[in-house]
């Protein structure tokens, strides 16, 4: 039976889709059969980040409305085995999603996959609530800034009250904190919230910390999830995150200011 993980944040632009793409890729690279579903109906992005935008024929809404079969809509990733993408519709809106329809799609996927990642839209409305409703675990993506932390706090409240697990009084959704765009030198200078501040306010388990990195933007624009860029700091940080999601103990990296080596300073090599 598959584990359903929602990647959510409340606030937009913090890196939900990037993280959903990177984590699902990482899980597939570790041999887990994974599907990642784009719930952002109307603002489809996941296909771009995954680099499969030219292969989209059917989407989630088509499947829910019975216009296509699930296997017709699932896109097989070209780089990793075991990875599939279920894109969102760009022409519809979030009202096209129904709880029953989503339940049916997830039920069908559950028997075939190890992990189902739901890439939530921003906000706390219908789309976001449907993305989280059936989740077993949640990855709450947060940037080191006050507005992002507050929105994440709000989402954590909804995870504890507006999900199937909450409504049926089952074990609560397992919550993980994923801090993205962390820049240790700006934290030191006081421009950004510290890791400790965020952990204290949100009071949930830290799954990973992704440093602010040029590799992320490059990966997004090339349509290659950053996990494939194993030489980059962000790629390594996502690999660590995936390992922790699989229950491994991995020490935290990239949270302290790195001193540049003499050679690095001489040749001005930036972060890769």
């Amino acid at each position: 039976m598959a584990k359903i993980i929602v990647v959510t944040s409340g606030k937009g632009g913090v890196g939900k889709t990037t993280s959903a793409a990177a984590i699902s890729t990482g899980l597939a690279l570790r041999g887990k059969k994974t599907v990642v579903i784009d719930f952002d109906v109307g603002l489809r992005n996941l296909d771009l980040i995954m680099g499969c935008e030219r292969r989209v024929v059917y989407d989630l809404v088509n499947v829910i409305q019975g216009e296509a079969g699930l296997n017709q809509a699932l896109i097989r990733d070209k780089r990793v085995e075991n990875l599939f993408i279920l894109p969102a519709s760009q022409t519809r809106d979030k009202d096209a999603l129904t709880k029953e329809g989503v339940a049916e799609v997830l039920e069908q996927l559950k028997s075939d996959f190890d992990y189902i990642l739901c890439d939530s839209p921003a906000g706390i409305e219908r789309g976001a609530q449907l993305a989280m409703y059936f989740a077993d675990e949640a990855v709450v993506v947060t940037n080191p800034e006050v507005s992002s932390v507050r929105d994440s706090d709000r989402i954590l409240g909804l995870l504890g009250s507006k999900t199937q697990r909450a409504e049926q009084s089952l074990d609560p959704v397992k919550e993980h904190l994923l801090i993205t765009r962390y820049n240790p030198s700006r934290v030191t200078s006081g421009d950004m919230l510290t890791l400790e501040d965020i952990r204290e306010i949100l009071a949930i388990n830290l799954l990973g910390l992704i440093p602010e990195s040029e590799a992320v933007l490059r990966a997004s624009n090339q349509g290659v999830p950053v996990t494939h860029d194993a030489a980059s700091d962000a790629g390594q940080a996502y690999a660590d995150t995936v390992a922790r999601l699989l229950g491994e103990e991995v020490p935290l990296r990239f949270h302290e200011v790195q001193r540049k080596s003499l050679l690095g300073r001489m040749f001005g090599g930036g972060r890769r």
Binding site: D153, G160, A203
Partner: peptide
């Protein structure tokens, strides 16, 4: 009538 709440009261709650 005293109410005891354990856990974090989050934004919006």
């Amino acid at each position: 009538a005293t109410r005891l709440y354990r856990g974090t009261v989050r934004s919006g709650q």
